[in-house]
């Protein structure tokens, strides 16, 4: 029995992409984007504040960092909770010392369970990015659209309600989406989505509720990826973050800036033996001239005033 005929048919073999959310565009042909104050690099730092439920389902898989042992996995539950109780304050102190503005990606459950953290973010004038309901409730291909609509409304409305912020950014838990996620978040007033890591720079996304933007949040440049998934050393983490920065800084000019993103999980980087490594990496970045520490919303606003067809 050969493969069914569809395996040799290519209905989307055409110029550009095989989906309609965004267009193909080469980096060398982009219109330059200058950041405020002639900065070369916009530093977009994203602490991820997550709630991993003890009864986390594998629906359709478990988000990285989730429960591992048979129920009740007190070990991983409490290790993740450590991030929100202890680690986060070490991370915040480092950012305060270095004068870094953050966009905090927050599960709605974190805002409900620890409104104190929302106050800490608001007090600093930082942004909150909607990060789903919690790490057990994923968005995924084939998901019921009513169920997903309710999940998104719950996340966005809870975070707006507790924080009083407009909340215009969206990060899907585990960067997992369904075919409807972009349409549904746009319908809730979301203006940018962090999941699509297709580029170093923002790009427009088409949705049923009009144009929103992708603000790519690096997948590799993250403590969770480097330290937790790859199990590299803390020194390797510092090297990769600073190497990433150095290359982007070299490529950028005051007329054509770049974005350096870094995702931090306080349950990882907020451990006593790791926090100084995070500080070293960030001090390297902040020690350069022409670094603009900004929120996702601010970066998007600067981009939108200048971007257009090349």
């Amino acid at each position: 029995m050969p493969l069914p005929d569809e395996h040799l048919r290519y209905p989307l073999r055409r110029y550009g992409m095989d989906q309609d959310w965004y267009d193909w565009a080469l980096q060398p042909e982009r219109k330059p984007v200058a950041w405020p104050g002639g900065a070369r690099i916009a530093l977009w730092l994203v602490p991820a504040l997550e709630f991993f439920p003890l009864n986390q389902p594998a629906k359709p898989f478990k988000a990285p960092g989730g429960m591992v042992t048979p129920y009740p996995d007190l070990r991983h539950y409490t290790l993740r909770d450590y991030g929100n109780r202890v680690g986060v304050f070490r991370v915040f102190k480092v950012l305060d010392r270095l004068g870094i503005t953050a966009s905090v990606a927050m599960n709605a459950k974190v805002a409900e369970r620890a409104p104190f953290l929302v106050e800490e973010v608001n007090r600093r004038g930082w942004e909150i990015i909607a990060y789903g309901v919690d790490m057990g409730r994923l968005h995924y291909g084939g998901m019921d659209i009513e169920e997903e609509t309710a999940l998104i409304k719950d996340s966005v409305e809870t975070l707006r309600g507790v924080s009083g912020q407009p909340v215009t950014g969206w990060l899907s838990p585990a960067k997992s989406e369904s075919m409807n996620t972009l349409d549904l978040v746009a319908a809730q007033g979301i203006e940018y989505v962090c999941d699509w890591i297709s580029d170093d720079m923002p790009f427009p996304l088409r949705t049923k509720s009009g144009e929103i933007h992708s603000l790519p949040l690096s997948h590799e440049i993250s403590d969770q990826m480097i330290l937790h998934q790859y199990q590299h050393s803390e020194q390797d983490f510092v090297d990769q973050v600073t190497d990433q920065f150095d290359v982007l800084y070299r490529e950028a000019t005051p007329e054509d800036g770049r974005i350096m993103t870094l995702t931090i999980h306080p349950w990882m980087s907020g451990q006593p033996h790791r926090i100084k490594h995070l500080e070293r990496a960030l001090a390297h970045i902040m020690g350069h001239d022409g670094v603009w520490s900004a929120t996702g919303a601010e970066i998007l606003a600067a981009y939108k005033t200048q971007a257009g067809p090349a």
Binding site: Q19, P60, Y140, G141, G142, S178
Partner: peptide, 8 residues
């Protein structure tokens, strides 16, 4: 690994 779209 994930059901389409496997965004990452």
């Amino acid at each position: 690994a994930r059901p389409a779209p496997d965004v990452v």
